[in-house]
Amino acid sequence: MTWALSLIYSTFGSEEEARRVAKTLLQEKLIACANHFAPIMSQYEFQGAFHEDQEFPVLLKTSEELVKPAAERLRALHSYDTPAIVHWAASADNADYEKWLFDQLKTPLR
């Protein structure tokens, strides 16, 4: 099976929630790695009201094959009614890193 690298981006209302959700996804082998970034300020309109909130962004590394189940699980674990869950294809320039990443993930062959 050939795997393709994908990234999933999401934001959370607290650092604790971001860590808890990422840890669950790691333990369930839906992602191989989670990169937590410094808090950001998000400005948006939701349900007719303007919001300006501090959020905690996380970049989740997985395979293209696991994007859908990872995103579905992320949505189920997320406290937001409408969480930002965005994904895109990526490539790794380090074959050893890519092998390590895919070895961390749930596969149908294991």
Rank of each mutant, 00 (worst) to 15 (best):
Leu66Ala: 01
Tyr97Gln: 06
Gln47Asn: 10
Ala84Asp: 15
Arg73Tyr: 13
Glu52His: 11
Leu26Gly: 07
Thr11Asp: 15
Arg110Gly: 12
Phe37Ile: 03
Ala92Thr: 08
Ser10Val: 02
Asp53Tyr: 07
His51Cys: 00
Tyr44Ala: 00
Phe12Lys: 03
Leu105Pro: 02
Ala38Glu: 13
Lys99Ile: 03
Lys29Ser: 14
Ala84Cys: 10
Leu60Pro: 06
Leu66Asn: 10
Arg19Asn: 09
Gly48Glu: 07
Asn94Met: 03
Ala49Gly: 00
Ala70Asn: 05
Asp96His: 06
Val58Gly: 02
Lys99Ala: 15
Leu59Val: 13
Pro57Gly: 06
Asp103Phe: 06
Glu15Asn: 11
Phe37Ala: 08
Arg19Gln: 13
Asp53Asn: 12
Leu60Trp: 08
Ala70Trp: 09
Glu15Gln: 10
Ser91Trp: 08
His36Trp: 12
Ala32Met: 07
Lys61His: 05
Ala32Asp: 03
Trp100Cys: 07
Pro69Gln: 05
His78Asp: 07
Leu66Tyr: 13
Lys23Met: 09
Val86His: 06
Ala71Gln: 09
His78Leu: 04
Thr2Asp: 10
Asp81Ser: 13
Lys99Trp: 12
Lys23Asp: 14
Tyr97Lys: 01
Pro57Val: 05
Leu7Ser: 06
Tyr97Ile: 01
Tyr9Gly: 02
Ile85Met: 11
Leu59Ser: 02
Phe12Tyr: 15
Trp88Pro: 00
Gln47Arg: 13
Leu109Glu: 15
Ala18Cys: 14
Gln43Pro: 00
Leu59Arg: 05
Asp93Gly: 14
Pro108Leu: 08
Pro39Cys: 05
Phe56Thr: 01
Arg75Pro: 00
Ile40Cys: 00
Lys29Ala: 12
Leu26Val: 09
Tyr97Val: 00
Gly13Tyr: 12
Lys99Gly: 04
Ala34Lys: 06
Tyr44Asn: 00
Glu52Gln: 15
Asp96Tyr: 06
Leu59Thr: 08
Gly13Thr: 03
Glu28Asn: 05
Ala4Arg: 12
Ala4Met: 11
Ser91Gly: 10
Thr24Gln: 11
Glu16Ala: 15
Asn35Ile: 13
Ala22Leu: 04
Asn35Tyr: 14
Gln54Ile: 10
Tyr9Thr: 10
Pro57Tyr: 08
Ser42Asp: 11
Glu55Tyr: 12
Ala71Tyr: 10
Ala71Thr: 06
Phe12Pro: 05
Asp103Arg: 13
Thr107Gly: 10
